[in-house]
Design a protein around this nucleic acid. Structure first.
Lengths: 124, 124
DNA sequence: ATAGGTGCAAACAGTTTGCATGTAT
DNA sequence: ATACATGCAAACTGTTTGCACCTAT
């Protein structure tokens, strides 16, 4: 990641601008509107570089393609709508302080994903 | 799932016998020792059928192939070792009763995955 | 006998990689 | 000028599917 290019600008900007985690395809669709002929490989390469640099974080939703969001947000988790598949940010962390783990296991991090119906899908 | 076959027996048995969620490849490896020439497609088809029937549940670990375990276990979650990649069962649920979700969202279920080092990997 | 299951290979989606071309520096 | 980035296509993994053959019922 030593050079500044139009494609990297665009990809960075898209992730910075949106307030929900995006899948690579979504990034391609959006950034591709600013850079003609943008390739999916470049999106992956750039996203991975941004993750390395700590500017972007990976959001893994079980059973879904990996998504990415800007780093530095407060610790939080995600809500995945069973209806439309959209992933929303949730504020805070609902994990109890006491987490029962087997003897001698070390917990480094955790993921919590809630599933259900978002407002729109619920009304529909 | 109307017929009883050797391959289905074997696949079912493997999942019933093991006390951790297995990836399809692991099921193939194990069940394949009892049924010569067992194919991965059959494993997938059978597993999916068992999930339909409610005899097996899907365990989705972010960033890992889907795993499967016997259904009917008490509500619990999983621990994924960053070292060896093994997935362990955790007893109980460390989610707080109060889970903050956006207005009007309905939560149907949740997944919690802890990551870290298991005992062996920690000592190594 | 025959509906249903199996194995194989092809097809797919998501992701990574090799390579020739293009470009920021 | 040149090292680094891009785009394309090929390769790879996990999963599904089409189809001819096989088998539990």
């Amino acid at each position: 990641m030593k050079r500044q290019t139009r494609q990297r600008q665009a990809i960075r900007d898209v992730i910075r601008a949106v307030d929900r985690p995006l899948a690579p395809q979504e990034v391609l669709a959006e950034a591709g509107r600013h850079v003609r002929g943008l390739g999916i490989a470049t999106v992956y390469r750039t996203i991975n570089a941004l993750v390395e640099e700590g500017e972007v974080t990976r959001v893994e939703i079980p059973g879904q393609p990996t998504r990415y969001e800007k780093a530095g947000l407060d610790h939080h988790h995600h809500f995945c709508c069973d209806g439309c598949g959209k992933v929303y940010e949730l504020d805070g962390c609902a994990l109890r302080s006491t987490v029962p783990t087997p003897e001698g296991f070390t917990v480094a991090r955790h993921e919590i994903t809630l599933y259900g119906q978002c407002l729109q899908c619920r009304s529909a």
